[in-house]
Design a protein around this nucleic acid. Structure first.
Lengths: 329, 329
DNA sequence: CTGAAAGCGCTTACAG
DNA sequence: CTGAAAGCGCTTACAG
């Protein structure tokens, strides 16, 4: 029924080990036979069984993408969706499948990771890094499963692909300042995330360079309640606020915009800056300057890095930092 | 090194076939031994190797999600992202992994499907149905790989999970009519898609029920140029237009809104209806009534259906139609 | 270069 | 109920 290597071997009048070598491009086969075998395989449309290869070689032919779930960050959908697509395409190029690992709502990622480790069904992992149990990482290292980060982690140094959080943030806030804004507050995500720290640092750098002394940073988790409350507090405590920098996108940003719009404040008076750009910014009644992340490139770079590891190359740089684009409005 | 079934068998003083049966909940093992074995496996944290199980049982333990790519439909990101998450979670519940299959940009899905069939690395497939080469389906049937649709296909009848396109559309347009709109045009997606046909039918039903004779439907592919041109044409050909129903979301919808805003037309004069709801509708200067699809439920239902097949149950209904929600603004 | 053999870690008839 | 054996379709030393 199923076309196997035995059939190919028989038809080509060689041993199946020879077929295997020919197909896998290993040396130890004469050019003559190799050509024959390849032609035959092509003709019969033969493709080795993934499970058999996996069992025999202890390489599964798949990589996993570990997506952490963030409270109220579901518009992050657009973020992960673009990244998934680009990773899947790179994986295909390398004849690998892409597995999506994501915890049940409310759980953390350690469950799916543990399962994947124990069942041995990935060769390597790409991991959304900001929030990560160090024990998960220990397990991965213990089991010698290669992995790379998307974003970086405050506790764990590792090969990563990240965007220029600090620089992008600084440029964005500098732009607000150069537009004459002097009371620029910063509504920031969870303080323990490295990207939050970087973005806040960029904010402070920009203020310093512009010679602005006034600053105000409020951190929130991304829950809707906390974000809305923080935003409201900012508006009442600083009635002279003339600009606001929100360090992340998704529902978080929408909650902030929402409070701003409902505050009775003239929204146009307040310059808004956001990290993460959405096309609908063009359509709303508040001008939003934003930092756009190169999502496709993030996925491609992370996958590229992982496949480097899988093929035994050790990348020269540990942290790949991609440029972001400023979108002015 | 790796903990195998042999180790378990040895420690429990039984044959590995007995361990296998116990672990898989098959009968033919005494309660006594079963308990012992289960306890031991639990204690040692044993988990069978996915590849070995796959090879021996010819069940891979993974399902695939086939995502078609649509020109200019990338905000569909939010759509697929929610669906991916819910499918992954259901798959986990069934101890299965989720593979993402998506073609390289510009290609169609047959490549990834063919690869997955030949390498035999999924037990079943969930397929975005609207645009599908019938040959792909033939191959799947030929190879006896179970699959279910998300959405429906105009050519191919098959088990599917879909939303109530016709009803939702009708309710939405009825609402526009009941608000006094009389010149309601419809900007629709590709005519060959079943969901487009259904949504347009809902539009016509609503008009008929409201006793409105005037109607205008323009189909476009989802490319930006075509959508913008169609939208512009609509506005110039029908200066008395007082409402517009756009049958889909994503970039397509944004292009339409964009043209409307730039037309010089007072956007508030024109009632806008959209199929697919986005939270940012709350923030734009045009009131948009929208149909919200239950994305999580779509994914869950589709995965549920597939696992029914995989465990030999034949679902009673062929087409599962989920209700949509009307969001008025 | 070539092939016979063992082995990857399970499952699944089959016999007892 | 229990276990010995064959087999899933490959890869990988190893010997020739």
């Amino acid at each position: 029924m199923k076309l196997t290597i035995n059939e190919i071997a028989e038809r080509a009048q060689v041993a199946k080990s020879t077929v295997s070598k020919a197909l896998n491009g290993q040396k130890g086969v004469s050019d003559e036979k190799r050509r024959q075998i390849l032609a035959l395989a092509e003709e019969l449309n033969y493709e080795p069984s993934a499970s058999a290869q996996a069992l025999a070689s202890s390489r599964t032919g798949s990589i996993g993408l570990l997506i952490p779930h963030e409270a109220g960050y579901s518009l992050a959908g657009a973020y992960w969706s673009a990244i998934i697509t680009s990773i899947a395409q790179v994986a295909n190029l390398h004849n690998h499948s892409l597995l999506i690992l994501t915890p049940a709502t409310g759980d953390d990622v350690s469950g799916p990771v543990e399962a994947v480790i124990r069942r041995r069904n990935v060769d390597g992992l790409i991991i959304g890094a900001e929030k990560l149990d160090p024990r998960v990482i220990s397990r991965l290292i213990e089991e010698e499963i290669p992995f790379v980060f998307i974003g970086r982690n405050a506790q764990i140094q590792h090969y990563s692909v990240d965007v220029d959080n600090l620089g992008g943030s600084e440029r964005l806030v500098s732009h607000l300042a150069s537009a004459g804004r002097r009371r620029i507050a910063c509504l920031a995500g969870p303080e323990q995330y490295l990207y939050t720290q970087d973005r806040v640092a960029g904010y402070r750098n920009a203020l310093a360079k512009a010679g602005i002394e006034w600053s105000s940073v409020i951190h929130t988790d991304y829950t809707s309640e906390a974000s809305r409350e923080a935003m409201a507090r900012l508006l009442t405590e600083h009635p002279d606020l003339d600009a606001l920098y929100v360090t992340a996108g998704g529902e978080f940003l929408l909650d902030c915009i929402d409070v701003l719009r409902l505050s009775g404040e003239n929204p146009k008076r307040i310059g808004l800056g956001a990290f993460d750009d959405y096309r609908f910014f063009d359509y709303i009644d508040i001008p939003v300057c934003a930092v756009r992340q190169p999502l496709r490139e993030i996925g491609e770079a992370a996958a590229g890095l992982l496949f480097d590891f899988l093929s035994g190359r050790v990348p020269d740089r540990m942290n790949h930092v991609l440029d972001v684009e400023l979108v002015l409005r």
